[in-house]
Design a protein around this nucleic acid. Structure first.
Lengths: 347, 347
DNA sequence: CTGAAAGCGCTTACAG
DNA sequence: CTGAAAGCGCTTACAG
């Protein structure tokens, strides 16, 4: 393939020539929001652009303007519905503003986010939305913050979705309040011995979820000990393996498993059944997030609706307005379904 | 925010000055695969870049080189696990080559793909991977092809994942052969009256799936009439609504529902149960794709493994090698599970 | 309202 | 191996 292929691209210069104006005026006529071009000239230019099939070179615009009409969203795992739901919200929010959204997958560690943000910065998006959910304090986290600050200094906007452990605009999700409400309702239904199933990786989202649940449980008279808290990879298979193992040794007196995500809860559900226990009947089961699929398992899964799409859209709004370090809260609400029926001897 | 913020960015010029060389040498030292720089100079330049926290401006590189070290994958719906699985495969395939992958969501029509590709072209990715699954012949489809040809003419690579109805390199998925194998196995299990549940939107993937199933069924002595084929939106809710309606009027003599995707099958499963029929027991149920969740519903869902991640990785490989209009086939394999138990009076 | 010119940050023949 | 210069496609003061 020769470099000549390059030559076939229609450029602004071509449009200008066709319309009989300078590239400067052609540029003005074609950029939205610029008024100072005579109507007749504008029309000729538009027509020429159309006729030639002109498509502006966005990267050239970017090197000239220093930014691109693009939103980059960083997710830990594109296959996890938690992230796709947020991404979908971002897309919906970006559409009206005429912004293209671009999704980049990282991984579950702060260093993963860091690597992706480094690469992304070079692409000069107008906004970077982080959805990783927080990694706690660490050297990588500090470097990530520093990298993002540099990006901001160049005029970029950064917004986080999750918890407020990054010093930027943040859409705060209801991991804590949602988990607390869930704990209260489950206590009312008569559950007394919950077992918590959290992620093995550091996650501020999960930490808030855990704290919210434990505190509210305590207020309802339920004490959750450290030995009641288990951790596995934040996937269907991770939870499945853990619960299978636990079930083999007996689940002691637990009457409820509460997972940090629906995906994990669903893996646990299958593991329970394979171990001869009927979820809902022998032991209650609750998830978190109200992800697609939660109401299609049997029994239907009790969970907490996080309103992820709304959060994604809100992140775009925050990023579009000027401001710093603002927090925007999105409410969560528990949804009780068949997997946590009222216990017989409710107090 | 003033434009001066821009000034704080570290540029190649800064690195060159720090190292005491020209920008040209600095550029050479920093670009991988370029040998002609004295080792000592290279070391000084690397050190300077490191010290200053230099991050190359990828958009500037792009306007200079005409391309970006980026792969753009176009998906119809990021929330659909079919697409996230392919995207995950692309990410895995792109990593070793040092390419960033960017995911853009479109919609289910050819005109949606067209709009996204237009926007994407401006970002000059090195490769565009289309996963839409084919839209059949139409004016939009022709325009899409034309747009992609222009992109190719500028040196870009395009690869499709799905069926071979686009005149570009294609990773062909086993919709047809997978569906055919499934039909044979289900016939062996004694099913005689399948009802097909396909997507309402035009899709070559689905058309192949349908043809594969019908032909193989016929070979096994099962005749599928037009009235046995139903269509709904390609979502959980779409299938749920359709099957609910059908169940109300009675499902006639159908002993099996075969859906074009697992997500649809899972929606159908819930609808059946809500209508008082036990999936697997009263009526068999099969999906397609072996998506996360398929083995976590009750009964576990019979489906066809499409090896989507492998397909995504294969697409990257195709795009990295030179060549045109090559077809690469990825095998599909049926997975029989509890949702299609052997019928009592199998022939 | 318009054009000539300088500039965005980088790459790459070209000539040493 | 290295530097000065031209160029990538666009934008935007500046001066009419």
């Amino acid at each position: 393939m020769t470099q000549t292929a390059q030559g076939s691209a229609v450029t602004l210069r071509d449009v200008a020539r066709e319309a009989g104006v300078s590239v400067a005026t052609a540029s003005r006529a074609l950029s939205p929001g610029v008024r100072n071009v005579r109507a007749s000239a504008r029309d000729r230019i538009m027509a020429a652009a159309d006729k030639l099939g002109y498509r502006p070179n966005l990267t050239a615009q970017a090197t000239s303007k220093g930014t691109t009409r693009t939103i980059a969203v960083v997710v830990s795992d594109i296959e996890h519905p938690y992230y796709s739901a947020i991404a979908q919200g971002v897309i919906e929010g970006a559409g009206p503003a005429g912004l293209i959204v671009t999704i980049a997958g990282s991984g579950y560690g702060a260093e993963d986010d860091l690597a992706v943000v480094r690469a992304l910065r070079g692409l000069s998006p107008q906004m970077i939305i982080l959805t990783g959910g927080g990694h706690g304090a660490s050297a990588s986290q500090d470097k990530l913050t520093e990298e993002l600050r540099l990006y901001e200094a160049r005029g970029g906007r950064v917004v986080a979705v999750g918890q407020d452990d990054l010093p930027f605009d943040t859409v705060v999700l209801g991991h804590r309040s949602g988990a607390a409400q869930l704990a209260e309702l489950l206590a009312e239904r008569g559950y007394t011995h919950p077992l918590l199933l959290g992620p093995a990786t550091e996650s501020t989202n999960a930490a808030e979820w855990e704290r919210g649940f434990i505190e509210a449980a305590k207020a309802s008279g339920i004490d959750i000990r450290d030995s009641d808290i288990h951790r596995s990879p934040i996937t269907r298979d991770g939870a499945h393996a853990l619960i299978s193992r636990l079930a083999r040794h007996g689940l002691r007196d637990a009457d409820l498993i509460v997972a940090a995500s629906d995906v994990m809860a669903i893996g646990a559900m299958t593991a329970l059944r394979e171990s001869g226990m009927e979820p809902g009947e022998h032991i209650g089961l609750a998830g978190f997030g109200n992800v697609v699929g939660a109401e299609d398992v049997t029994p239907e899964l009790t969970t907490v609706e996080l309103n992820l799409a709304a959060a994604g859209a809100a992140a775009v709004q925050l990023g579009l307005e000027a401001g710093t370090r603002r927090l925007r809260h999105i409410n969560a609400e528990p949804i009780l379904r068949e997997s946590t029926p009222p216990r017989l001897f409710a107090h």
